[in-house]
């Protein structure tokens, strides 16, 4: 990663953190629901049992539902921080699973 890219990534993370602090529900609905969907789908693809091709097709079908489900949760929950923390945790946990796993071949 080049220094310029590193600075851009750091800036983006700071902005995201500020946005999450200021408006946890809105940031969760716009950003964290998407990241949690992508990483949880990838983690499922890597570790769920069954033939890869079948998993890939079923997960493709499930992605819009998971995404909308997460978005809905952000405004449904009474406490604004609970969905935000939950989605960040899902993103980090599933991201860790995906990045620490051996690449599929």
């Amino acid at each position: 990663m080049t220094p310029v890219l590193l600075v851009i990534v750091c800036l983006a993370l700071v902005c995201l953190a500020a946005a999450t602090w200021k408006a946890p529900r809105l940031s969760s609905a716009i950003v964290w629901a998407l990241t949690a969907t992508i990483f949880s789908s990838a983690a499922l693809l890597v570790h769920a049992p069954g033939p890869f091709a079948q998993k890939a097709l079923w997960i493709t079908l499930a992605v819009p539902v998971i995404w909308v489900g997460f978005q809905f949760w952000t405004y449904w929950d009474g406490k604004p921080w609970r969905p935000a923390a939950g989605l960040i945790a899902i993103t980090c946990l599933c991201g860790g699973i995906v990045f620490l796993s051996e690449p599929l071949t």
Binding site: I38, A42, P103, T105
Partner: peptide
């Protein structure tokens, strides 16, 4: 969503 999901999943699971 398939248009963006394919490359993203490839990036993550197939590096």
């Amino acid at each position: 969503v398939v248009a963006i999901l394919g490359p993203l999943v490839a990036l993550l699971t197939f590096k």
